[in-house]
Design a protein around this nucleic acid. Sequence first.
DNA 1: TCACGGCAGGCAAACGGTTGCCATCCCTGC
DNA 2: GCAGGGATGGCAACCGTTTGCCTGCCGTGA
Lengths: 336, 336
Amino acid sequence: MDNRDSVQRRVTINDIAEATGFAASTVSRALSRPGRVNAATRDRIVAVARELSYVPNTHARALTSGRTETVAVLVSDVTNPFYFGLIRGTQHQLKAAGYAHLLIDTENSGELESHVLSKMRQSIDGAILATSRLSRRLLAELATELPLVAVNRMVRGVESVVLDSPSGVAQAAEHLISLGHSEIVYMSGPENSWANEARWRSLIAAGARHGLPVRRLGPFPAGRMSGSAAADALINTRATACIAFNDLLAIGMLTRLRERGLGVPGEISVVGCDDMFGADFCHPTLTTLAAPIEQAGRVAVSMLLARLNDSAPATRQSAVLPTHLIVRESTGPAPR
Amino acid sequence: MDNRDSVQRRVTINDIAEATGFAASTVSRALSRPGRVNAATRDRIVAVARELSYVPNTHARALTSGRTETVAVLVSDVTNPFYFGLIRGTQHQLKAAGYAHLLIDTENSGELESHVLSKMRQSIDGAILATSRLSRRLLAELATELPLVAVNRMVRGVESVVLDSPSGVAQAAEHLISLGHSEIVYMSGPENSWANEARWRSLIAAGARHGLPVRRLGPFPAGRMSGSAAADALINTRATACIAFNDLLAIGMLTRLRERGLGVPGEISVVGCDDMFGADFCHPTLTTLAAPIEQAGRVAVSMLLARLNDSAPATRQSAVLPTHLIVRESTGPAPR
DNA sequence: TCACGGCAGGCAAACGGTTGCCATCCCTGC
DNA sequence: GCAGGGATGGCAACCGTTTGCCTGCCGTGA
């Protein structure tokens, strides 16, 4: 009977009020603003609350306070393994802080992204945007309306955590140069990707530093299927080394290169980006830029929560996480 | 000015009421129960609503109606690529229906699973449980309190969609038998996994049908790292063929087998389960049981939504999705 | 003794919808 | 001409919590 009741009707703050003899407002304060009530009172209320296994109603709270204890994580494609680490990192950190984790797939569409964001504004406290496709202007504008942290996207006025792939690309370029390659080709990813541009610019700089020609092919969609087209394009250039926008593309290329009988790394060296799941067991295993993406997720959440909890509007800043090259089997000396 | 206002204060049902001259209740009905008001009235209200770019407040709605338009998807480990397809499927289908997608990682813990579920009861309309670690009793009990669909877990009284891996395992066994293998070893996954037991039982049956000995090793945690231990254990048995609980384990084994100098499929044949991301580009590529997991996610959502929207309590049922064997490089004739 | 200030608690009004119930109005059939 | 009933819209209570404001009380210093 008792049991059935507790199942049928959730216990509210009023039940606790009734049970303790205090007013509902006091119960509310005891639970959410402990300093505001007498210690003895608070203990009593807390005890009864847990005895009744009280669970505060998120919606009622959200309605008045505006806080929802929910953070949205927007990724452009949930099935891209690159995001696994990010999702894991945000998930972990949000759970630790008692926040709910709303995962949203924006399907590579900036339009969908902004639409979702504006529709969700009332149901989330903040959002983490991974590789946003939004225009700089729109992003900055949204950031004024909603606490936002961008991952792998740097825009003035928006807090962000970025992976220092420029430095990684430089390492990769030097690695290839030291192996005797005389030209490096960049296999470009989606044009609207900030990271893509950053990597390409970094390769240009590295090439300039060493007086080496660089070239860019593409853009290619960031999927494994595009690997074939990318590989064919690369073969056509007769270049011996490339850096691909990401591992997905690189792995796709490996498959196609083998199909076409090109040896990797014997005839062509391939470097990927992200060290995503699979880079260490594909064939040949992939030399790639390892990025601490899980950590990026955690840092992004920390930044967001700091802003949500401190009344201070926070100094807009960005965290830069180091990347480093992991050399595996897909790179080797240039053929002569 | 106008613009600033609309940013500062969200437009509510009352704003529409004021603008149209109707009562708030009429506006509410026009928007959520179109048949209940005059067509002309409804059109007027809808027009004004979109003009003011009205977005209903989820929380306010949830408070009275109890509906939250949110479905939780619980997976035991977000970073297990097996779930990618599932997440994609649920995400896709939920979005199409206008529901929010709450992703929760239960970290392989049944305890955490039930805790989350009970804490979330008020903020979700239903839940999809992938490979639940909950006891049969607990699961059935929860299902009476909250609309639930289990994926890859069959329990009486709980709607579910399961992958017919038993039939797949039978196919795999026959494949191995036809290649001349005289014993098949099952590399067991976590003991509390329903799918694991189902697969093992199916292998026993297949063995019995063909008068072939089968054996089981493990249990091994369902990760790639466990592959080493699994491979070593397998080598020790001198068996020539195995079916692994999942691809993660199988890929881990491939790596270790190569390290130890065993040829695959020359000396040992390996079959995985799930055809997850990577199974087609690991080395050697993996023969595996392909499961339409993305479809499973979609079906699960459909079943759940059907139950949420139809007043009918729904005939508790379960959908079984076919699996089939994909033969790649990791299986071959038994050595003699 | 009195004024003042701080602490603890209560009252009640929100927050933004939903919904049961009631009032009209108009149409229909007898 | 009238009862009955469907269509349409309004009123107001309610969902569970938060929070601004008020009150009573006690302690303290002048």
